[in-house]
Design a protein around this nucleic acid. Sequence first.
RNA 1: GCCCCCGUAGUUCAACGGAUAGAACGGACCCGUCCUAAGGGUUUGAUGUCAGUUCAAUUCUGGCCGGGGGCACCA
Length: 577
Amino acid sequence: MKEKLKKNITEALEKWGVSDVSFSVEATNDETHGEYATNVAMVSAKILKTNPKALASELVSELSENLPKEIEKVEVAGPGFINFFLKREYFSDTVSHILKEGEHYGRSVALKGQKVMVEYTDPNPFKEFHIGHLMSNTIGESIARLYEVQGAEVKRACYQGDVGLHVAKAIWGMQSVPERDENPLNSLSPEAQAQYLGHAYQLGSAAYEGGEKDAIEEINRKVYDRSDSEINKLYDWGRKVSLAYFDGQYKKLGTKFDFNFFESEMAKPGLEIVRKFLGRLFQESDGAIVFHAEKHNPKLHTRVYITSQGLPTYEAKELALHVAKARKYPADASIVITANEQDGVFAVGLEAFRQIDKEHASRVKHVSHGMLRLPTGKMSSRTGGVITADELIFSIVSKLKEKFSESERKADEVTLESVSIGAIKYSILRQSIGSDIIFDLEKSVSLEGDSGPYLQYAAVRAHSILEKAKAEGVRGSLTSTGNVEVRLPHEWQTRSFERLLSHFPEVVERAGAEFAPQYISTYLIEIAASFNNFYAQEKIVDKDDPHSPYKLALTKAFRTVMENGLWILGIKVPERM
RNA sequence: GCCCCCGUAGUUCAACGGAUAGAACGGACCCGUCCUAAGGGUUUGAUGUCAGUUCAAUUCUGGCCGGGGGCACCA
C-alpha cells in the first residue's frame, strides 16, 4: 500500500516536472489522520514556490484520478500533510487475515536466506548466574527471536569464561573451605553446588585483595597449563557442576543454545593470533603485549593482549572467538550482546579484529545493554555479593503467592514460574536496551498496568472467553471462504481495535531493524488495554447476540497477536492465572 | 584529564525530523447480580539550559549544567 501511494505521488509530481524530491509515506500514529500520511507537499513547496497547504490540495485532486481501490478518502490536514483513509473492509479483512495466519501472523520473509549468530548470556563458570546474566539472556533471546520472525536462520551462542583469574579465585576459595571434604557435595542440588562455588569465589576474591595475589596467580597459571593434578580435580568438578547449573537456568528462561564456546578453548589460538601479528599490529610494552588501538582510531585506547606472565587476556581470547565463530557457522551477521560497561573493551577488540580480517569484522555487531539495578536495601544476596537470578525469581514468586492468595486464586508452580519470569523479562524489555533498569520489586509485583503479568492476564482472559464460547456452542464468524462477517455496533471503537491489530507486522519489522524489543512491549500494552476496554464494555459470548460471532473473531485475533508478540519477548502465556 | 552513554509529568519509562509529546504508578473522582475487577472510565501533570540547522527539533549540531560507565597486564 505504501509503495503504491508513493508511486502515485511520484507520477503526479513528474507531470509537473518535479522529480528528485525525497518525501515519505508513513503509517500514522493517530487514526484521525487516516492510515497513511505523506509529507510531500511540505517538502516540495519550496521548490514549486508555493505554500504547502495549497500544493497539497492541488496534489489531492491530481491524485484522486488514480487511487488504489482500498482508499476511502484523502484529506489535507495540519501544516500540509496529505492523509489517506482506508475503507472499512480493509480492517475487517485484517481480522480474517490474522485468524488465517495464526502463529505466522507478524512473521515475514524480509531476512530470508540470512544467517545470523547471536551471542548472549555469557555467564562465567565458578561464579553465580546473576541478574546481569538474566538481563543479557532476556535481551539476547528476544533479539534472536526478532531475527527468526523475519525469516533469518538464527544460531544462538553462549561464550563462557571457564578460565581466567576469576576461576583461580574460586579454586583458591574451594581449597580454603574446611568443610570441603566433609561435605558430600556431589549429592547436593545444582543450585546448592553453585552456591558453594559462589561462596568460594567470594573468599578467593577477598583473598586476592588481601595479600594472596601471588598464590592466586599461581593457580591461574596452573589452570591454563593443567600442570597440577589437585587443581585439575577441583577445576574439572567445578566446571562440570557450574555448567549443569547454567543448563537449569537456560531451561527455566526458555533458551536453547546451538553453540557453546569456552574461553579455555580460545586461549591457545588467541595467543597464536597475537604472536602472528606481533611487531605489526601488537607491540611489546613493559613485558606485556599490547594493541595500541588509538593509532587506528583516536577515540580508542591501548589494551593488553598477553600479560607479562605470558597469559592471554580476555581481549586475545576474543580474537580467537571471532575466528572460531566464523568457522563454525558462516553468518552474515554476528551479534554480540554484552553490558555497556564493556563498550570500551569491545570497541578496541573489534578494531583489532578489523585489522586482521576486515571482511568478517564488518559483520560483527555489538549490542550493549545497561545494568539491572535494584533499589538499595530492597534485597540482599545470600552470598554477600551480587544478587543471583534465582534469588530475584524466588522473591518475585513469594510476592506472587501473596497476591494469588489475596484474590483466592490457585496457582501451580509452573504458572508461578512463568508469571515471575514474565514479570522480570517484561520489565527488562519495556524500555530501550541501552539504559539501566531500576527494577522495583514492589512495583513489578503490584501487577497493575505496565507489566508482564498484565499482558499475560489479558491473553489468559481472552483464552478463557474462547473456551467458554466453545462450551456454550457459540462460534466465531468465519465463513466458508474464511472471511469474517462483520456485524457490530460501536463501529468506530471496533475499527480502532482492528486497526491496532493490523499494525503488528510493521511493529515487528521496526523492532527488528533497530534492535528494539521495547516497540513490541509498548505495542502489546496498547492492544491489551484496548482489549480490556472492549471486554469491559461488551459481553462477548452471548447466544442471543448476533454480534457475538464477530466479537469472538476479534477476541481470537487479539489472542493470536498477543501470543505472537509475547513469544518475541520470550514470555510464556500460562493456561490460567 | 580523555572517551562513551543518558537528562521527558511527583516516580519509572515510550515517542521512525512531522500534526494535540504516549503509557503506567502515585493523587482526585466514578463503575460490583454479567465471559477471571490482577479489570474499566474521567481527571491532574513533563521535553535540564543557551544557541544553531530546518517549512517543521524530545529527536540533528555545538556550548553549558547535572547523572552513569570506561580508560594496561580482571572479565
